[in-house]
Amino acid sequence: MTHVVEVNGLTKAYGDVKAVNNVTFKLEADKIYGLLGSNGAGKTTIMHMLTAQQFETSGTLRVFGEHPYENNHVLQQVCFIKESQKYPDNYNVRDVLEIAADLYPNWNREFAMSLVEDFQLPLKRNMKKLSRGMLSSVGILIGLASRAPLTIFDEPYLGLDAEKRQLFYDRLLEDYAEHPRTILLSTHLIDEVGTMLEHVLLINRGQLLLDEETDSLRGRAFSVSGPAVAVERFIAGRTVIDRQQLGGLVTASILNNPGSSSGQSEAESIGLAVAPVSLQQLTVYYTRLQNRDTSSNKGAK
């Protein structure tokens, strides 16, 4: 089958600096992907290239089987909502929504209007006068109501409070269930969206570190907690990715060694409390691991 997105050796270089370095991945239809990574990792650049708003230095790029540059067949199937989106100053919310309705073939007016109410958006207010949170709400609204086969959200909720963010997740999942599409979501609030993501792409320093189903990624690690002595004895010889102590109580996150069986039942048998490790912890671990490797490599040179 053809993939919604196929990226091969994608690179974006600014002089010597490679913002995106030889990235290869594929997105399947009707799945929710998380594009994770720290600031400046290259997430936004990748998303811009997917929509031909920036140009790749090298590598190949296929969206719905074609290159997106100046390609209406591709572009009208993609809705890209970014935190930094600029709107004309003198356009009000209604203007922007009408234009979006004009542009996206699957736009649903009723859904859009219900979202206007949910997010309490003032239709007649100029975009220039919206608060940061309202501006984000407009983006989210367009991203949802456009029902584009490929919907890309890049940090869509700057300035949004927890209640509105939850509203976004709820509406997204509800609508996704009825109208499946491919969603690529980039965010820093990993634990908030962790349960939503089916597949994770982790980017650091322009390189792709992980490209894995969320469940299998979670299965790689677990955390144990209990009295310090018992925990210390248990974690000896295991890969510890995080360790926290509170009084005599230690919580340690452990990465399963490849090939060996998971130590969860063993931990339970000696009376330690076992819990899953959050996606956020795992991404932080892998990101730090790469940062350490690259800096120690530099030291060796």
Binding site: T51, Q53, V78
Partner: peptide
Amino acid sequence: AQTFPFALGMGIRRLD
């Protein structure tokens, strides 16, 4: 200056 960044962000082709 006002409308191009918006249009590009909304998936409008440069030619259009």
